[in-house]
Design a binder for these strands. Structure first.
Lengths: 210, 210
DNA sequence: AAAAATCAATTAAACGTTTGTTTAATTTAA
DNA sequence: TTAAATTAAACAAACGTTTAATTGATTTTT
């Protein structure tokens, strides 16, 4: 708690907001909830971010700008086969989405219901960048005759949709996979492994040329 | 006639609530919004449903109890091969989820952020029923040596997750698939077809025994 | 080096709206 | 005449945001 007091209050607010927006939704969370969890005066939200909505925007912008260069490297790497490339990409998405599951839950919610077109554009751009990356690998694989012809948009929907489904139905998959919902570390490890194995089998048979 | 008029305003409220909850979220929608769109006095919400939350519960219960017998028939039918059975089930889910996309968006939102444990249990039960159905077909296919061994929980996540991804990122897929977002009928036809073809290819290669 | 000035950080309190719900009166239908 | 349906108005509580005052630390002036 002494460490928390030392930390920047701006960061404390972002952390608290991420947790609460994911658990109760943007409109279901009051600025007083956030301030209380962050142990910060509620006026600091306006002071640092201007408004509750700009706090959300800052949260989204910060998370979207993480790890982008990591993915660029993978896409350009010529020494990896398309199949390994897509499997590594799937692993990357699994790791990142599961690790930041709260944030990605917020993104899912906000893309539908959010009233801010600024935020919607942010999310659309992020999704587009990800899709272009997948589409590029699929095209490369087809050019090299190691992938068969598939629907790139639907394949993307399957990749991201499967992960989102597991994240956004966490309660259910904790029951099905017999995972203690309170043990976040155990949840992360088990779900990550199951998803990666599933994708290895699914993507191989879906993409491999006959 | 008399009965229809009696429940008329109740139905109008349910229809308006479905649209608004899907577009702006449960907490983002006020009872005044709903009453205005339904052209009904806002006190009628408490009169008919008791509260805003019980209105949501009524909406969910009503939609979950549709088409259940239709699915039971398919599962029990012994004259259909497991592969055709799972493909018909996928088609069924695609049709139903796309047709009732607004409702299923609400379900996705509310399963994470909703504070009512009653509603969460409703949704869990619905998801469980669907999973048991899929799991049964997968087991039958493996018993008859026409399916290989796959992860049932993850396969379910892929099936429902892919559809949900398309529904919950509607903006994005309208851009990608060059669909006029305002033409609901065109959207429904094109997305439904793309999803069904994709599933036919994906599930066949994923499930077929070598 | 002490005092004064400056500016960002922080606070409690108050602001005007909007929220979901209830009330009590009135209309409608049987 | 009775009960259900419908209404406008009122309710307290919660909402996001702003205010004006105060603190704390750093810089400037004396």
């Amino acid at each position: 708690m002494a460490l928390a007091e030392k930390t920047d209050k701006r960061v404390q607010l972002l952390i608290a907001a991420e947790q609460l927006f994911a658990e109760k939704g943007f409109d279901g969370t009051s600025v007083r909830d956030i301030a209380q969890l962050a142990e910060v005066n509620l006026a600091m939200i306006s002071y640092y971010f201007g408004s509750k909505e700009r706090l959300l925007k800052a949260l989204i912008e910060y998370n979207f700008n993480l790890n982008i260069e990591l993915l660029e490297d993978l896409s350009k790497n010529e020494s990896i086969s398309p199949m390994d490339k897509i499997l590594q990409l799937a692993d990357f998405y699994v790791d990142k989405f599961i690790l930041k599951r709260r944030f990605h839950t917020i993104v899912s919610q906000e893309y539908n219901t959010g009233r801010s077109s600024e935020i919607k554009e942010l999310i659309t751009n992020f999704k587009m960048r990800n899709f272009e990356r997948v589409k590029g690998i699929l095209a490369e694989g087809q050019r090299k005759k190691v992938f068969r012809k598939v629907d790139p948009e639907m394949t993307m929907a399957t990749l991201i949709g499967t992960i989102n489904q597991v994240i956004n139905s966490r309660n259910m998959y904790c029951i099905l996979l017999r995972i203690d919902s309170d043990n976040e570390e155990d949840y992360r490890r088990k779900v990550t492994e199951r998803l990666k194995i599933h994708f290895r089998q699914l993507l191989r048979s879906h993409l491999a040329a006959e």
